[in-house]
Design a protein around this nucleic acid. Sequence first.
DNA 1: ACCAAGAATGTAATCGATTGCATGAAGTGA
DNA 2: TCACTTCATGCAATCGATTACATTCTTGGT
Lengths: 342, 342
Amino acid sequence: MSEKATTVQDVARTAGVSTATVSRALSTPDKVSERTREVVFKAVEQTGYRVNRAARNLRTQRSNTALVILPDLSNPFFSEILEGISDHLSGTGYSMLVAGMTQIRDSGERLIDYLNDGRADGMIVLDGSLPQDAISSLTAPTHRDKIVFACEWTNQADFPSVRSRNRQGARDAIRHLYDLGHRKIGHITGPEGNVLSLERRDGAVAELTGLGIAPRAEWVIPAGFSLPDGRKAAQRFLKLKDRPTAIFCASDIQAIALISELQRHDIRVPNDLSVVGFDDIEMAEFVTPALTTIRQDRFQLGYAAAVLLMECISKDSSRDYAQIHQIPTNLVPRDSTAPLLP
Amino acid sequence: MSEKATTVQDVARTAGVSTATVSRALSTPDKVSERTREVVFKAVEQTGYRVNRAARNLRTQRSNTALVILPDLSNPFFSEILEGISDHLSGTGYSMLVAGMTQIRDSGERLIDYLNDGRADGMIVLDGSLPQDAISSLTAPTHRDKIVFACEWTNQADFPSVRSRNRQGARDAIRHLYDLGHRKIGHITGPEGNVLSLERRDGAVAELTGLGIAPRAEWVIPAGFSLPDGRKAAQRFLKLKDRPTAIFCASDIQAIALISELQRHDIRVPNDLSVVGFDDIEMAEFVTPALTTIRQDRFQLGYAAAVLLMECISKDSSRDYAQIHQIPTNLVPRDSTAPLLP
DNA sequence: ACCAAGAATGTAATCGATTGCATGAAGTGA
DNA sequence: TCACTTCATGCAATCGATTACATTCTTGGT
């Protein structure tokens, strides 16, 4: 009954070879003669053998596991990125450990420990706001080749990263509104200090300026990416005496909440106000009016990050420093934007 | 430069004790005299020692890792459950491995291997539709005590599980509509064969019947939980000659898409039709009209599942079979339901 | 003062797979 | 046929922590 797991020893015995040969037959099949290879495979089949990961990890000093760090596990925005990551990882035999910064902080763990104690071979960080000490510990030469940022990033160190063309996306959003005839264009920002917020705001400002429109300070409404933030932004908007005719929001979620709240106050979108979001979350297509937005390919973002991480980990040669992969965004016109009425 | 990781040996040496003592000082501090304990701690401090997980895992035959299985990584519904799980796990020193069934199938892995090869000590399954062979392999006596279902479950085996009171939630939804004066009440179901769909439909039917209302077959519209499903359901709804005055949807997402599509066809919610959803996703409060729904506490669901799993794993005594933990749901009345107009 | 019980520590085996080195077999070229 | 390379395999060390067992040191009771 005692159901002891089968080991290489068992396989070696039934195959009539040494454990070394079994191991080789499995991990480097071409170093073994065809005949023994088959014998071993058959023995593996018979005994139902599976390598013990703990033993392999100890010996090889690799875990075949990647750690993914989210700022906040409960944020649904990341799910599609996770899928992209997992999709590539699982193809390369890697497993995906997931942790949220909140939990990590609470449990008093340090990110770097995951790398040190052999739980993970590398990590993908989706949080641009790591505490300073975390960042500096990660920059240690032993670790810098095991870390990749995705989606967000940090300016305090130059890690390789994968990100959307946030600035260009923002420009496209503004341009779209301009092309519809809008000249009075506002912007709801993301959270203060966040790299994405900055890029999107800068992009918007740059495009406006380029189009000969001076951005008006009271039309740049500071907010965060979340639903409540969007609602609050709407309330700020309602208080404006002179209102823009179009708004570019730093996130879809925010835009959806904003529209909802404005509708409640009888402002019609797109008739009274055109709104562009950012992200193209699935919901964007299904709200009324369907949201015009800047699509970022989150699956691709995750996938590319995983590819990049695997490269970093495996590459023994010193690699060109701190690559930045930019994923294109694109405008998805829907019903929340319309030509400016004369 | 070669930055070799510090081991118990190093600590033992600097502390002037044996490795056994170091190990004991760290894992069973009371088996060691106060004096040596301090010396060891100091040495740990000095050397910056961290246990090597691979080595520990091999020796102890535990990984201190739990595997979480999602049907679909990209589905944002699960993020809050994940947070609940992680919140408890990280408190007990466990790490969380996450995998989607899609990826697992594609990579040809078997769930059971995670348990066998020492990657995980136990698993939380959020997918009620595992393939038959997966389920039967998991029922093996060696594994059945390492598995917990959460949110969804399977009827093909009796694993312990944590779930919402789906039936009661559905009853509450119907009752709410009834109390508002509605008698012509429809239902959009979840995907065929899904346990949640079944429970919610059964609950709705039971409540209707209990209230003396005979459920009408054409008012039970088969659908899935997703946004496109909700839209399709709306189209089916529009074709009805005799329409209900109220609808209970099996998911919020579905309800949101349904309302959006109906609004596009000038059906006003709640004036022309009252709608109740299920889940209380964050968005529910922020759409127009704000969605009346049955709240299920997803964080709690995940948290309880993690607690249950840890119990199962640690309990050496044979435990009472296949506990089912039910998490209460509750009605959250908002603006998508209104009294039936005379 | 002596012995037994218990506490603290050390020695060395162990977990299971991988791999450097050694050995033997087979093949190659002159 | 001989020397020599190449290939296939086996032996045994190794990864780093834990723990059964042995040993030494306390301590308390009589």
